[in-house]
């Protein structure tokens, strides 16, 4: 079980916690059987994290652990060269989705995203940049962006963004976490809508031009809110369980007949538009996972 994929482990942990067998909201990961030598030699980083953040030395005590949002399996849709559908824009790494992971990423496979596809995207983007010096951006797009930015910076009264960000994080974890239920996902849709409403009145305190992370963090919050809304719409629409998308109450099984397809979402007129893309199966046929 310890070496199963992460969605399986997460569900096992969350089940223990939900059913009251956890320890103060965690389960305990015991490494002691490995011995001091092996932990010091081979698990130095794990031990360091555990000691700094949990105050626990895994040589002597089990580490308290619980599921968390670790990796975004989806991302900006690209081809195998990192190309997006925006001319001249390439994506690589965790923000990109070349679709090598499907509904779950196996341990270590993010390296493929960074090393293999990072290299391909970088090379392709460089070649594109050498052949093209400018791209056409509609004037209105630029003007819209400048107007929005000015409005945000000119506002002197309003809510600071951090409460919205913290509420988004907490509620997404509660309602859109390891196990997903139709009613909770719908409830989360309403919460996100409410937070987006509040976002319209946020205030940025730093008005300067120099390393203004107050502004960049505010802009990032807007993206987080939009992304959360996309996830809610997609999550509700996928009426099956697959990889990290687990709906044990209403749709506990994988449904290849209806849902072996990619969820595509685009942002149109201020809201997400849902679409699907077929999966190309070549050599490896999907199989049920067993451990």
């Amino acid at each position: 079980m310890e070496l199963a994929s992460r969605d399986v482990i997460s569900r096992a942990e969350q089940t223990e916690i939900d059913e009251g067998r956890g320890v103060d909201g965690n389960v305990l990961l015991d490494l002691r059987h490995l011995g001091a030598e092996k932990i010091l030699d081979r698990l130095h980083g794990t031990r360091e994290l555990s000691m700094v953040f949990a105050g626990v030395d895994p040589i002597r005590e089990p580490i308290p652990v619980r599921p968390g949002a670790h990796y975004h399996m989806g991302g900006v849709d690209t081809d195998v060269w990192g190309k997006t559908n925006v001319e001249g824009l390439y994506a690589a790494g965790e923000c990109a989705c070349v679709s090598v992971h499907g509904a779950n990423r196996l341990g270590g496979n993010a390296l493929m995203e960074t090393i293999t596809y990072g290299k391909r995207a970088g090379r392709h983007a460089a070649e594109w940049a050498l052949a093209n010096t400018t791209i056409e951006i509609p004037e209105s797009t630029e003007q819209d962006a400048e107007r929005d930015l000015k409005a945000l910076l000119d506002r002197s009264d309003g809510e600071r963004p951090w409460r919205i960000r913290d509420e988004l994080a907490r509620t997404m974890h509660e309602n859109f976490g390891v196990f997903r239920r139709e009613d909770q996902m719908e409830r989360q849709g309403e919460i996100v809508a409410g937070l987006r409403e509040r976002y319209q009145q946020i205030v940025v305190e730093d008005k300067g031009q120099l390393f203004n992370s107050d502004l960049t963090q505010a802009l990032e919050l807007e993206f987080l809110l939009e992304l959360a809304e996309c996830m809610v719409v997609c999550g509700i629409a996928r009426k099956e369980s697959r990889g990290a998308h687990a709906r044990p109450q209403d749709y506990p099984d994988r449904d290849d007949a209806n849902y072996m397809k990619h969820t595509m979402v685009s942002w149109e007129n201020g809201e997400p538009r849902l679409d699907w893309k077929p999966v190309t199966v070549t050599k490896w046929q999907p199989q049920e996972r067993t451990y």
Partner: peptide
């Protein structure tokens, strides 16, 4: 074990 690790208030 610290409280951070235990998710206690």
């Amino acid at each position: 074990m610290t409280e951070a690790a235990l998710n206690v208030e």
